[in-house]
């Protein structure tokens, strides 16, 4: 708790700074795309939120596995704390994608492999949170949600690589790639990377706040039980 309280203000400041720079740069100072017009400005929200949606589930998988193997309570509380952030990121990716898709594809929604996998990932996030809320015994809830997280990881992987598995659907390939030829133009790439860093740091900030809350809530529950027992 001492380490997290020391780094939290710095991570929060960096998150606000990088989000402000990335989004202001992207929104105000980048040109329109020659085909997509000004809708390309949605990329600075859509790509970082979609990337975070998948990566947050991956983080939850790692921390859930640590719980299963080592019974480390903080790790599973970190997974629990991350789930609402991941669900929000997935919802932002789905909503901004639909708003972007309507003028570009002529449709708010298509049962495209990547879109469908993302919708299922969102439902897994909701299921994961519902399972935590439904079970009173914290250790039993941790066990069952960890198993759910393991199953949901299949859809997180499909969300990321669906475009490679099935060469069909409306969704374009990855906007960011290590292969320079596949990457988007530098003029869009630079603010996009800063926005990505901002979304990542925002996640770390919220994760620290929410995990500390979960640890305190666990202690609060223990003290209340002790009081009740006299």
């Amino acid at each position: 708790m001492r380490t997290s309280s020391a780094i939290l203000p710095w991570v929060a400041r960096l998150a606000i700074l990088s989000l402000a720079v990335g989004l202001i740069w992207g929104f105000f100072f980048t040109p329109d795309d020659y085909r997509q017009g000004s809708t390309v400005k949605i990329i600075y929200l859509h790509v970082p939120s979609a990337t975070m949606a998948i990566n947050i589930w991956a983080m939850m998988l790692v921390t859930s596995l640590i719980w299963v193997v080592r019974r480390h309570h903080v790790s599973v509380l970190a997974a629990k704390a991350a789930a609402p952030i991941g669900a929000t990121m997935t919802l932002i990716a789905l909503a901004t994608g639909a708003i972007w898709g309507q003028p570009m594809w002529g449709s708010w929604w298509e049962w495209d492999p990547r879109l469908t996998a993302f919708l299922i990932l969102f439902l897994f996030y909701l299921g994961y949170m519902a399972l935590w809320a439904a079970i009173d015994n914290p250790d039993a809830a941790a066990d069952l949600t960890s198993i759910l997280c393991l199953v949901g990881s299949v859809f997180a992987v499909i969300s990321r690589y669906a475009i490679n598995f099935w060469n069909q659907g409306l969704h374009q390939g990855a906007s960011l790639s290590l292969d320079a030829e596949e990457n988007i133009s530098d003029v869009f790439w630079q603010p996009l990377v800063i926005s990505l860093v901002g979304f990542g740091l925002l996640f770390v900030t919220l994760l620290l706040i929410r995990t500390r809350t979960e640890i305190r809530a666990r202690r609060l529950m223990a003290l209340k039980q002790r009081e009740r027992l006299g």
Binding site: T88, A95, W100
Partner: peptide, 13 residues
């Protein structure tokens, strides 16, 4: 479309 995408994202965040 652009403004509503930003409004939805900022609202949710």
């Amino acid at each position: 479309e652009v403004l509503s995408a930003y409004a939805v994202a900022f609202g949710l965040l």
